[in-house]
Computed example of a mutant assay.
Amino acid sequence: MTDSCEGDVCITCSDAAVEVVVAALLPDGLALVDTDAGTREEVSVALVEAGVGDVVLVHAGEAIATVRREAAP
């Protein structure tokens, strides 16, 4: 997980849930996500079904819902 926050909102420690896009799936239920701030952060996706390109709702470093699924090619 990220040790420091950048920008106005940090998805790992803010009190609000933030929509992010899954950029890559990692081992152990983790993913790299692209934020609106143009940064990439590592979050847990262990509680949701998510794939690359999906939009997930993240709170405190944990994806809590899949908002939009990327259409299969």
Rank of each mutant, 00 (worst) to 15 (best):
T2N: 10
E41M: 11
T2G: 02
C10M: 11
D8P: 01
E42F: 00
A46M: 02
D54W: 04
V22H: 04
V48I: 13
S14T: 07
A24V: 01
E6L: 14
A31H: 07
E41K: 14
E19Q: 15
R68C: 01
H59S: 15
V56N: 10
V43N: 09
T35P: 01
V22D: 09
V67Q: 11
M1I: 07
E41T: 07
V22I: 14
C13R: 12
T2K: 09
G7T: 08
A65S: 14
V33I: 12
C5R: 11
R69H: 13
G61Y: 06
D54H: 03
V48F: 06
D3W: 02
L30M: 14
V56D: 12
R69K: 13
S4H: 04
V20Q: 06
A72Q: 08
V20H: 07
E19K: 14
L32Q: 11
A23C: 02
L32R: 15
M1T: 07
E70M: 10
G53I: 03
A65W: 01
V18I: 07
G53A: 05
L25R: 15
A65E: 13
A46C: 00
V18T: 14
A23W: 05
R40C: 04
E42P: 00
V18S: 08
P27H: 08
E41A: 15
I11Y: 02
C5S: 10
V33W: 09
I64S: 08
V55I: 14
C13M: 10
A63N: 05
A46L: 03
V58A: 11
A72E: 08
T35R: 13
A50P: 13
